[in-house]
C-alpha cells in the first residue's frame, strides 16, 4: 500500500508538470489550429533562464525565497518573450498559408532553439541549484512524497486557478474564448485577433517556463535537450485529453502521469516512454477526439 501511494503521488507530480506544458499546446491549437512544436523548447529555455538567474542571485547571497520568486518571474517573462517572438517570426507570416507550412516552420523553430541553447550554453548536463527546501512538516510523510512534490502540486494548483480566472473573467480571456469559437466573428466584433494570438503564446510560454523551473528543481539537472521529450509527452497528454480543450489538457496530463508512474513502478522503468506512447496510440485508435474533446463535426 505504501508503494502504491508513493507511486500515486509521483504520478500526480509528473502529471502536474505535463499539464503546465500541455496547456500551451492546447490553447494555441484552440485558437489557431497549430501544433506548436517549438513549445517544448520554450519550456527548456524557462529552465535555463531560472538556472542562470538563480545562480547569479545565489552568488550575491539572496535568501532562497527571494531567489525562487525572482528566478521564476524572470523565467516566465523571458520565455514569454520567446513565445511571442517565435509566433511573430515563424507563424504569423504563414497565417494564410496551407496548414502544413506553419507545422514545418514550428519544427524548424524547435531545432533552431535547441541548437541555439546548445551553442550558447553547453551540451553537458548542468546540475540545477536546490531551489526547493526540505519542508520540516513533510518529514512524517517522507515515505510517500517529498517536499518538492508538494511544492510542485501546490504551485500548479495556484497557477491553474489564475489561468481559469483569466480565461473566464478578464477581457483578454473573453477575447480568447471568442476567437477560439469563431475567429472571423471575433474580428467583426472588434477583437484584435493578432493580439489575442500573441497573448495566447505569451501565457502558454509562461506556464511552460514555470513547469521547466519546477521540474529542474525536482530532478536537479538540465540539458539543452530536455524540451524534446517533455514537449512530446505533454503533447501526448493534450491529445489524450482532447486537443483544444483546457480541462482536457489537465485531465490528460494527470492520466498520463499516473499511467507512467504505475507502469514504471509495477512493470519496469525501462519501458517508461513505451507506456506513454502506447497510450497515445490507443487513444488515437479508439477515441481520436480525446477524453474531453468534442467530435469534429462539419456543418453543411
Amino acid at each position: 500500500m505504501h508503494y502504491f501511494i508513493e507511486l500515486f503521488f509521483s504520478g500526480l507530480t509528473r502529471g502536474a508538470i505535463y499539464a503546465l506544458i500541455a496547456l500551451g499546446y492546447t490553447m494555441v491549437y484552440g485558437i489557431i489550429g497549430l501544433i506548436n512544436f517549438a513549445h517544448g523548447e520554450i519550456y527548456m529555455i524557462g529552465a535555463f533562464t531560472s538556472y542562470i538567474v538563480a545562480s547569479v542571485l545565489s552568488l550575491y547571497g539572496y535568501p532562497l525565497f527571494a531567489t525562487v520568486i525572482i528566478a521564476g518571474a524572470a523565467a516566465v517573462v523571458w520565455s514569454g518573450a520567446y513565445g511571442y517572438t517565435v509566433e511573430r517570426l515563424a507563424y504569423r507570416p504563414l497565417r494564410r498559408a496551407p496548414r502544413l507550412s506553419p507545422l514545418i516552420s514550428a519544427i524548424g523553430m524547435s531545432i533552431l532553439l535547441q541548437n541555439y541553447v546548445f551553442l550558447a550554453q553547453t551540451s553537458d548536463f548542468i546540475s540545477f541549484p536546490k531551489l526547493i527546501p526540505d519542508l520540516p512538516f513533510m518529514d512524517r510523510y517522507a515515505d510517500y512524497l517529498g517536499s518538492s512534490d508538494v511544492v510542485i502540486l501546490f504551485t500548479t494548483l495556484i497557477v491553474m486557478g489564475i489561468l481559469t480566472f483569466i480565461i473566464r473573467y478578464t477581457r483578454i480571456g473573453k477575447a480568447m474564448r471568442a476567437t477560439a469559437q469563431d475567429s472571423t466573428m471575433a474580428m467583426l466584433v472588434g477583437i484584435n485577433v493578432n493580439r489575442v494570438i500573441s497573448a495566447t503564446f505569451v501565457i502558454g510560454s509562461g506556464l511552460a517556463a514555470i513547469g521547466g523551473m519546477l521540474i529542474a528543481a525536482h530532478i536537479g539537472q538540465i540539458n539543452y535537450y530536455i524540451g524534446f521529450l517533455a514537449g512530446i509527452k505533454a503533447f501526448t497528454a493534450a491529445v489524450l485529453g482532447g486537443i483544444g480543450s483546457i480541462p482536457g489538457a489537465v485531465l490528460g496530463s494527470l492520466v498520463l502521469g499516473l499511467t507512467e508512474s504505475f507502469a514504471t513502478g509495477y512493470v519496469s522503468s525501462d519501458y517508461e516512454d513505451v507506456f506513454a506512447f502506447t497510450l497515445l496510440v490507443l487513444i488515437l485508435i479508439f477515441r481520436p477526439s480525446g477524453l474531453l474533446g468534442k467530435k469534429e463535426s462539419q456543418k453543411v
Binding site: 469563431d182 467583426l188 472588434g190
Partner: peptide, 24 residues
C-alpha cells in the same frame, strides 16, 4: 485597416450564417 479598427469607426456587420459564438 484591420477589422477591429473598422469596428471602432462604427461599422458593424452581421455576417451570413449569423456566426453566433456557440458556447457563450
Amino acid at each position: 485597416l484591420e477589422p477591429d479598427q473598422i469596428v471602432r469607426r462604427g461599422v458593424c456587420q452581421v455576417p451570413e450564417g449569423r456566426h453566433i459564438f456557440p458556447q457563450l
